[in-house]
Design a protein around this nucleic acid. Structure first.
Length: 264
DNA sequence: CCCTATGTTCCCAA
DNA sequence: CTTGGGAACATAGG
């Protein structure tokens, strides 16, 4: 579920709520998550994001590292009501508690020592300069959409935003990366920066499960131009939006706006 | 029963 | 060795 804009939303909201606070207890509800070394008594010193990975940094130079996979999310509650369905982990603070909710149970939680070093590619928001992408692409041939979603190259783009970025840049998802011109790369970099920035401003995309830290839906679903719009008209040219599979993922695009050689 | 789902990793074949 | 595809993970919803 959550891609870069959704994790960034959680990051910003968590900074307002738990930085400087002391963890009073951490309770694993779903044994599949494994066991957490004791973090009770630790103070939260900061929140960081690495692509789609979220790290809650602790003063004792460890961090709680979360990956939400498909359906994971976090919920902050001031009051100690009953657990909402699918709660897998609860971290308690004096002024409220943080729950990890995850119907499909793919999410992971680990405690890392010191500064987490996670082998990920460049962050499209933190490192504004994406000109390195063109260079990386010279030595490989995958379709541009596959390339954008490869977390070791650029970290944070998933299926929804890959589709949206390529529509904005007017590039066909199947286009081989080694066939793109410098101008097209500029367009992709710009579309990436703009799409992700706007999605963050909207607190993410709630097409199904996604909710922010306080249980509220995001608003970017109202701005989607191709994702989940199969058969509907392209807002730019009126053509019907197509959906085909690429690497097993539903891939939405406009066959007119995103026409190009080398594609299906 | 069928298919789909915002992610990642592993296995196997070419 | 590399690349690409599919399955697996587990669950809900249409």
């Amino acid at each position: 579920m959550p891609e870069l804009p959704e994790i960034e939303t959680l990051c910003r909201q968590l900074r307002q709520v738990i930085v400087g606070a002391e963890i009073t207890a951490a309770c694993i509800i779903d044994a599949k998550l494994g066991t957490l070394t004791d973090i009770a008594g630790e103070t939260v010193s900061g929140i960081r994001r690495y692509g789609k990975t979220l790290a809650i940094e602790l003063a004792g130079n460890r961090s709680l590292v979360l990956h939400f996979r498909m359906t994971g999310r976090l919920l902050w509650q001031h009051t100690g009501n009953g657990l909402v369905p699918h709660t897998r982990l609860v971290v308690s603070f004096p002024h409220g508690r943080l729950s990890l909710i995850d119907p499909r149970r793919f999410a992971t939680v680990t405690v890392h020592k010191k500064r987490t070093s996670i082998p990920l590619g460049r962050d499209p928001l933190d490192d504004g300069d994406l000109s390195c992408l063109e260079e990386m692409a010279q030595h490989c041939t995958p379709p541009i959409k596959t390339f954008l979603m490869d977390q070791h190259r650029i970290a944070g783009i998933g299926n929804i935003y890959a589709c949206e970025i390529l529509h904005q840049a007017r590039i066909h998802p199947w286009r081989g990366v080694n066939t793109l011109s410098p101008d097209e790369w500029k367009g992709i970099a710009e579309a990436t920066r703009q799409t992700l920035t706007r999605a963050v401003a909207c607190r993410g995309t709630s097409v199904s499960d996604w909710r922010d830290l306080f249980g509220k839906q995001g608003e970017y679903q109202g701005h989607l131009r191709v994702y989940a719009r199969e058969g509907a008209g392209c807002y730019r040219c009126g053509e019907e939006i197509i959906r085909k599979k690429l690497n097993g993922r539903g891939t939405y695009y406009c066959p007119t706006c995103q026409r190009s050689e080398g594609g299906q």
